[in-house]
Design a protein around this nucleic acid. Sequence first.
DNA 1: CTTTTCTTTTGATCTGCATCAAAGCAGACC
DNA 2: GGTCTGCTTTGATGCAGATCAAAAGAAAAG
Lengths: 249, 249
Amino acid sequence: MAVHQDLRATNVDCADCPIRHRAVCARCETEELARLEQIKYYRSFQAGQPVVWSGDRMEYVASVVSGIATLTQTMEDGRRQMVGLLLPSDFVGRPGRDSVAYDVTAVTDLVMCCFRKKPFEELMLSTPHVGQRLLEMTLDELDAAREWMLLLGRKTAREKISSLIAIIARRDASLRQRKVSGRFVFDLPLTREEMADYLGLTLETVSRQITALKKDGLIELEGNRNVTIPDFDALLDQTGDDNDGGFLV
Amino acid sequence: MAVHQDLRATNVDCADCPIRHRAVCARCETEELARLEQIKYYRSFQAGQPVVWSGDRMEYVASVVSGIATLTQTMEDGRRQMVGLLLPSDFVGRPGRDSVAYDVTAVTDLVMCCFRKKPFEELMLSTPHVGQRLLEMTLDELDAAREWMLLLGRKTAREKISSLIAIIARRDASLRQRKVSGRFVFDLPLTREEMADYLGLTLETVSRQITALKKDGLIELEGNRNVTIPDFDALLDQTGDDNDGGFLV
DNA sequence: CTTTTCTTTTGATCTGCATCAAAGCAGACC
DNA sequence: GGTCTGCTTTGATGCAGATCAAAAGAAAAG
């Protein structure tokens, strides 16, 4: 999720935190920053560790400082669907509701910047900018969810994998402030099984399709995490999307 | 989307409009109501008519007064996925962005209560309650989208149809203020093809599964729109969901 | 009432992905 | 080094749902 250009980071701890950035926005009061600082704290999780379970109370809202987390839903018989992928600067939590409807899990080691919910909600009421920013972020997430629904409902396995690799490449590039063209090199943050849960496939199908993309020269692999995309547009052609560049998130 | 209990409707024109209700909330100023009235207007659409196309500018935000509309995404080769279903009291539009990313279509005759975007955005800045309510609604929609993603990614055809019928029954019942148990009778607002677009299936599969549910006594059909659910819990058992009643939307 | 058009059902066949099974690989730990 | 343990690949087979095709209803139009 992109950070506003008119915002400046004031420390490295939480450089990408969208909430905090909003608080130090040139348009806002320094008082807000002070109040956000008071209710802010950090939490760390190890790779694989649950952050919260579906149905639990979550007494804070938070943004990802570093690492990756997933939101997943699980059916009684164990079928699992990922419904959210949180990268640094993404937000999680629901002001106005105290329990979560899905499992949140740390995929890699994870640091989150948390705000206790009650004071955060009060802050939202008194400072419209914070709520405004949150609405904007939630609407972006909704757009992303709708893109994801098209993928789940109508794309083929090959299109799904191509889309996911393109999404990760793009987000990785934007986090590193690189531009979106030329040769991409990055590590897949997810296992084959996690990719399958993202895409509504089995891990075997994911593995087979990645092998196929490799054979077709659309991606190169070093080990089974490190990916190189020699020609990003060629990969985009495989996603089934209108690749006119007008892309969200 | 449920309307707050502490809100009262003041006219029949737009009885379920969540924005307007918020404006006449006992906690809010009457001034807000007056300002909302100034920027409000109604638009009607005939069944089948497009409301906006993907990529168009949408210079208003709106809530559905009566009728049904869909949000759909379409791939170049014509594959289509519904990504939103708007029933009365649902909201559509994006403060802060001027173009839409999907087609909005009237499924039945449709009346929408529209607010010109610019003044609406200004109103949001000055009256936190309106923005607050909008955030709440957007978060609800995001939860619904995530439930929908589980359906698209992991459910079988039978589970998908059962889920859709249950969703429509529940929303129909809540619109009519009936309680959620006992015998449900209602009309399907969607054609088989529209249901297929909702569920990520083909219309033939939808038809076959509906026939199967009928044969198994889980639903009764009169014509091919009017549905009776003799035993709602029995239908819920077919959806694959934890039917502990803790359901959103 | 008849004709046209759209929607729905039903049938036959095909195929993409799931499932089941086993072998290959790589990092962690002793 | 060797042995685990968890991840990934590859193979063989099966099946749910797609596709192709046509008939049967239902609603709209003349």
